[in-house]
Design a protein around this nucleic acid. Structure first.
Lengths: 185, 185
DNA sequence: TACCTTAATGGCACTCAGCGCCATAAAGGA
DNA sequence: TCCTTTATGGCGCTGAGTGCCATTAAGGTA
């Protein structure tokens, strides 16, 4: 009766109690009541556990883009989808904050994030490429993926600092801050 | 008579021959003619070997910023220093390309890059913070660090694709591409 | 009911990064 | 010559991650 949610739950409890680095896969396996070998069948690595079902949320991300009217200005479309991607129900927003705090404050996980971010950037690059009728490996699609990520991570960092802040509002603010910065003389 | 350069040289040869993941620290130690334990005294981890003396180059990066006239527009100053940081002599540019290709195409190293990038972003954040008379942990300094990194990585990716391209020219192009993207309606 | 197939499980042994500890050798200074 | 510092590297350990294989549960068929 093992499933991802049960593993995640037990793991997050241990990460909170002992810290990520001081929690072994054997610890988690024991807490879930399962063999270590089984854990590695549900999550390809220890670093993937905090990310939960990130791959599934990328599918939703793609659907957001698919639903954008084609006449929407490109930058506006991308920003709106990034905001939508980071919009969470009140019932899960605190759990999301715990998850992201763990990921963004644990060096091991910050490093692993690069792999996850790459897939996220790819979704954006593919949309931009589609809109411009070019390949997703072209210069501009990749650039927009990188810059959108930069804005998002900056917003997340601020979100973790200000407990009362709104993530979507912060995304707007970071975007506005970037525009002002580039326009400044 | 062991030094960083000798280790790097032997390691790069092996990485080229066998791939990064299939080269063990024991392999490198044997090639250098030194104990594995000694390798870990020169480089804190296997992942740090491809980065060479990155920390030292960050000191130069800081000096670039210190030499900028205070009346230079902020965005212009940052971009100029990023370009300067990525300006290499013709005699070392090909070695730099090998290094960056390894880092940017090996998943293990892409992940580790996050740690290195953080220190690089910090240099930018500190300069922006200084110019604005605020803290380096404030929103805008961190944002500019992230966005500058996004532009740089995008330029590097393109640089690896186009063998004849100029890295500094690509940095200008990515910056121009971003401005055009954000200004588009 | 007996039989067969398939998927999930988990134990075992192995590789490799990385660290703590300690012994040794070389170098340099008084 | 003695003492101290520094570089070295061996040894053994922890922990992530993998391949292999045996066991068990589940589901379908004759």
């Amino acid at each position: 009766m093992t499933d991802h949610a049960a593993i995640e739950h037990a793991a997050f409890r241990l990460f909170d109690q002992q810290g990520f680095d001081h929690t072994t896969m054997d610890d988690i396996a024991r807490a879930v009541g399962v063999g270590k070998r089984t854990l590695f069948r549900y999550f390809p690595s220890k670093n993937d556990i905090p990310w939960g079902q990130f791959g599934a949320s990328l599918d939703l991300f793609r659907k957001q883009f698919a639903a954008v009217p084609p006449e929407t200005p490109l930058a506006e479309a991308v920003h709106a989808c990034v905001v939508a991607f980071n919009t969470f129900d009140d019932t899960v927003v605190e759990q999301h904050r715990v998850r992201m705090r763990l990921i963004l404050t644990t060096p091991t996980l910050q490093a692993h994030s690069a792999i996850k971010y790459e897939a996220w950037r790819r979704v954006i690059a593919e949309y931009v490429a589609h809109r411009l009728s070019i390949g997703a490996d072209e210069r501009l699609p990749r650039l927009i993926g990188h810059v959108s990520l930069a804005i998002s991570v900056a917003a997340y960092e601020q979100w973790l600092i200000d407990p009362g802040s709104s993530l979507t509002h912060l995304l707007d603010q970071e975007m506005a801050g970037l525009k002002a910065y580039l326009a400044s003389r």
